[in-house]
Simulated assay, not measured.
Amino acid sequence: MLACFSHPTVAAAIVSALGETPRRALPLDHLGALALHHLILAGTGLVLVAITGIGLGILATRPGAASVRGGIDTLAAAAQAVPPVVVVALALPVLGFGGPPTLLALVLYGIMPTLRGTVGALEAVPAETREAAKALGLTARQTLTRIELPLAAPAIVETLRTALVLAVA
């Protein structure tokens, strides 16, 4: 239905009926270039969010990092609390117009869901599984890469899906 209303002929008729002068529609090649630019920004933002959010989530769940977990959560919540438009506006004097401030806003806005999803997924791995890995002689790194991350992967991927929806929106 939205696509029908967006067709240039229908949209021009609607705008005319509302008493406005119809404007020229964007050429399809220009619209395609804008859509591609949007997808590249969203994809790049997702990659940066995945690296940062999953990395911080892993760090926050390690036994030695219990003292910094509150700080990590606080920073992620603060980044989420600032609307992306405000981030872009504040970043303009430093980063200029275009992609860089938008990318910064995407990353800041996507870190908290990714961080919290990663923490939740890793904490959902049963303690017995970790103990079994330790009993088999696996190191902490091996337990993380061979046991915890594979078991947590479905929930982490779901978290990244959420981050992608936020980035595209």
Rank of each mutant, 00 (worst) to 15 (best):
L166V: 13
A89H: 08
L136E: 13
G96N: 11
A42Q: 00
V165N: 09
T145W: 14
V88W: 02
G32L: 11
V88F: 07
P83E: 04
A3R: 14
G53S: 01
A3S: 09
E20K: 14
R116D: 06
G55I: 05
G137T: 11
A153W: 11
P84I: 04
L122Q: 04
V119N: 05
V86T: 13
R24W: 10
I51V: 15
A91S: 04
A121S: 08
L166F: 09
L31W: 12
A12F: 01
S16Q: 14
L95H: 02
T162Q: 11
A33E: 14
L90A: 09
L18H: 05
V15I: 10
R69D: 07
A135E: 06
L103V: 02
R141P: 02
A11E: 07
A91I: 01
L138R: 03
A79E: 02
T52D: 03
A50N: 07
L90G: 01
M1A: 15
Q80L: 15
R24T: 11
V49E: 04
L59T: 01
T44Y: 03
A50I: 04
V49F: 01
L138G: 04
L106G: 01
V119E: 04
A135H: 02
A50G: 05
T162S: 12
P126F: 11
G55N: 05
A81D: 03
G53T: 05
L144T: 02
G71H: 02
G117Y: 03
V88Y: 06
V107S: 06
D73A: 12
V15E: 06
L36A: 13
V47C: 13
V88Q: 00
V157H: 04
A121Q: 01
G137P: 05
T74E: 12
A35Y: 11
I40K: 13
A105R: 01
C4W: 13
A25H: 07
L34M: 10
V10Y: 02
L166T: 08
